[in-house]
Design a protein around this nucleic acid. Structure first.
Length: 427
RNA sequence: GGAAGCUUGGCAGAGCGGUUGAAUGCAACAGUCUUGAAAACUGUCGAGGGUGCAAGCCCUCCGUGAGUUCGAAUCUCACAGCUUCCGCCA
């Protein structure tokens, strides 16, 4: 959530910034609601103060054994008026915070302006897409001809569309990828491994700001009359680890990494990426999260992007780094780099990781703070990045490492995780 | 699923319905002493919000939500979480 004081003091600048995210703020609405809130709050607190002091007087008078009936009748009249005021104030405040929760994060000055993904800026490239001297297959055909180890048919039968069943060598390759990614981030990049719940409560999804705006993207469950949500990314449980806490300066930065399934309803993406396992309701991801001091967050974003890139480098997959333009930067993010891996069958780069600096946007809703050098409580900055999406990495490996005979060469980095197997082929 | 106990500040732990936002201890921070550190001593020290140029003043918060009362950490109800015992279970 944005800082409401930013709007009170500098509405026009905030408004101009958010316009780049294609969000138009209603100034009149905000100003009138704020005015209403202010007068109501002042009146309410005045009455509360009066009630408090009179009640205190009653206590003092009674202890002296004096008569209190006169004061009692005076204060008892306050009751109804106060109750109504409190109710009204509550409504106005709810409306205001609700409105606030629907405003996106402010963009960093280094983010280029643009409408959509066409305006994103390529920052750098790694590797050269391989030239094939035979007709290539996409991962669906490859997986089918390798003993149906990539099995969409079975998944459709037992669950529906946008699910996949992996078997035997490909299932093992999928597992190897996740293990390899985890180990690399733990051993080379200094992250702490965390195992997290795959269902979280409502407060957690509010904490990382997926709610209230993106409810329809989530899978929702009922448990004991309470809403539970399947995590759309491990970012939610990992980041909420520091919700409602005050951290010590020396604890920062916190670096968490988790491997988890992710669940997304993909509402509104009908017809997009229907073939293959690019867009699934359930996919695995290795997620990095960092909790850092505000002044370091943009430096850390560069580092975290490098951490994700290292996985692709070690797998020797061609990719490029893209700085998202204003219109393509997500709701909670101030700045985002996407990593796009080369997908031969589509003859293009496809998103495989997204690294974002959420600045204090999430920490404000989570109340995640640290005691700074002045001894003041200050909101931390939170960052997250995929390191990487395991399913899409599997796609990339299958397609980039395919051979004329339909077999797949296993990347060197993964062989230790595959009993030193070198090739996946039809058995 | 059944039964009992518990839930207070960063932690531990007091708290007869009335100047209690909360004793005390630890931790933390600042200072004195010390070549430096430790110890000792002195002082500061919960969070969120409103208002104000500011100093300050005010409001809210003792698991969560309702209720009783002029007044609730303290009483009532519901729910949740934790601990222990029984049942079931991977």
């Amino acid at each position: 959530m944005l800082d409401i004081n930013l709007l009170r003091n500098d509405f026009d600048n905030v408004s101009a910034n958010l316009l780049n995210k294609k969000v138009k703020l209603d100034k009149d609405y905000f100003i009138s609601l704020e005015a209403k809130r202010k007068s109501l709050q002042i009146k309410t607190e005045e009455l509360q103060a009066k009630r408090n002091s009179v009640s205190k007087q009653i206590g003092i008078l009674k202890s002296k054994g004096e008569d209190v009936s006169l004061v009692m009748t005076e204060v008892s009249k306050l009751g109804d008026e106060l109750k109504n005021l409190e109710l009204e104030l509550n409504q106005v405040q709810n409306e205001l915070t609700n409105w606030m929760y629907n405003l996106p994060n402010i963009l960093h000055e280094s983010v280029p302006n643009g409408m959509n993904e066409n305006d994103n800026v390529e920052v750098r490239r790694y590797g050269t897409p391989r030239t094939f001297d035979f007709t290539i297959c996409d991962h669906v055909d490859l997986g089918y001809s390798i003993n149906k180890e990539l099995d969409f048919e079975s998944a459709a039968k037992i669950s529906g569309s946008r699910f996949v069943v992996l078997k035997n060598q490909i299932a093992k390759l999928h597992r190897a990828l996740a293990q390899f990614m985890l180990d690399t981030h733990i051993n080379n990049h200094g992250y702490t491994e965390v195992y997290v719940p795959y269902m979280v409560n409502r407060a957690s999804v509010y904490g990382t700001c997926q709610l209230p705006k993106f409810e329809e993207d989530l899978f929702k469950l009922k448990h004991n009359d309470e809403d539970m949500y399947l995590i759309p990314t491990a970012e939610v449980p990992l980041t909420n680890l520091v919700a409602n806490s005050i951290l010590h300066m020396d604890e920062l930065p916190l670096k968490f990494v988790a491997h988890s399934p992710c669940f997304r309803s993909e509402a509104g993406s009908y017809g997009r990426d229907t073939r293959g396992m690019i867009r699934m309701h359930q996919f695995d991801k290795v997620e990095m999260v960092q909790i850092v001091k505000p002044e370091q967050s943009f430096q850390v974003l560069e580092e975290m992007t490098n951490h994700a890139e290292n996985i692709l480098k070690m797998l020797e997959l061609p990719y490029r780094v893209v700085l998202l333009c204003s219109g393509d930067t997500s709701f909670s993010s101030a700045k985002t780099y996407d990593l796009e891996v080369w997908i031969p069958s589509q003859n293009t780069y496809r998103e495989i990781s997204s690294c974002s600096n959420m600045t204090d946007f999430q920490s404000r809703s989570m109340q995640a703070r640290y005691k700074n050098t002045l001894g003041k409580n200050e909101l931390v900055h939170t960052l997250n990045g995929s390191g990487l999406a395991v399913g899409r990495t599997l796609v990339a490996v299958l397609e980039n490492y395919q051979n004329t005979d339909g077999s797949i060469t296993i990347p060197l980095a993964l062989r230790p995780y595959m009993n030193n197997q070198t090739v996946i082929r039809k058995l």
